[in-house]
Amino acid sequence: MITRGRRRGAGRGDVRRLAGAALAMGLLAGCSALPAMPDPVPTLVEPSIPPAPAPSSSGNLSPDGFDTAQRIAVRIRNIGCGALSTGSGFAIDDHTVITNKHVVADTSTLQVSTYDGRDVTANEAATAGLADLAIVRTAETLPAAPALADADADIGDAVTVVGYPLGRTLTVTPGHVVARHTDPLNETLGEVLVTDAPVEPGSSGSAVLDADGRVVGVVYAKDQNGHSFVVPVSTLRSMLDDDTAFTPLTPCTS
């Protein structure tokens, strides 16, 4: 069973506005946010992007948290059957990456690269049935793994999103938790966090960190008002503790 954080929502007017905004929200992986059509399938797969320059801002992170943020984040390229898309993810141990289910969907091959430009072989992936989460197992050792926060962030807490929007430079984006809201895409999931940290396509699967670099959630969608939607760490913890929560992903065949 999913553990939900304490319900500390915005006012009724705020919740109604968020609910209306959520109707227009889209998933973030790939070349565009839903409901736009995807870009044409490329004729060539570009080589891995070289190491990106360090972010110019540390967001709401402490110096130690900033260092951790850079090392845990990975860029994921999904070479699918009929499409090429990008997303973000983060390590939770030496060989395990957390990302979104829609980042790895319809894949033939997953390519994972680290902050220093190193390519890491993805051996297998598994997806959750309840939330927009996925696990990717790697052959090589990942640079670093963060601590998972013991509790969900509260409304008003400062947070930082760390990922690769548009599949490009590692970006550190500050924001605050502005509400808790029933998940507009998976109503059985329960409540998710809403932040004002702006995200872009390719940010899906980004870690959301507190000031000390602990994971408080996973970005999975945005709306047209600049809000990002986050699976809270309580849900992530519950699913990682449940052996039946993730199902192995079968690669597509062209």
Rank of each mutant, 00 (worst) to 15 (best):
L185T: 13
L185Q: 06
N186C: 10
T188P: 11
L189G: 08
L189P: 07
L189K: 11
G190I: 00
G190F: 00
V192W: 08
V192K: 12
V192M: 14
V194T: 04
V194Q: 10
V194Y: 03
T195I: 02
P198N: 13
P198E: 04
V199F: 11
P201G: 00
P201V: 05
P201W: 10
G202W: 11
S204Y: 01
G205L: 09
G205W: 10
A207G: 05
V208R: 01
D210H: 02
D210S: 09
D210I: 00
D210P: 03
A211Q: 04
D212P: 09
D212C: 03
D212K: 00
D212M: 06
G213C: 05
V215C: 05
V216G: 02
V216A: 04
G217W: 01
G217D: 01
G217M: 06
G217A: 05
G217C: 05
V218L: 05
V218W: 02
V219E: 00
A221P: 03
A221V: 07
A221Q: 04
D223I: 05
D223N: 15
Q224I: 03
Q224C: 02
N225M: 14
N225E: 15
N225I: 09
G226F: 06
G226Q: 09
H227P: 03
S228N: 07
S228T: 02
F229R: 09
F229M: 07
F229W: 15
V231N: 02
P232R: 09
T235Q: 08
T235R: 10
T235I: 14
L236T: 02
L236N: 12
R237A: 07
S238A: 15
L240N: 01
D242S: 13
D243K: 01
D243C: 04
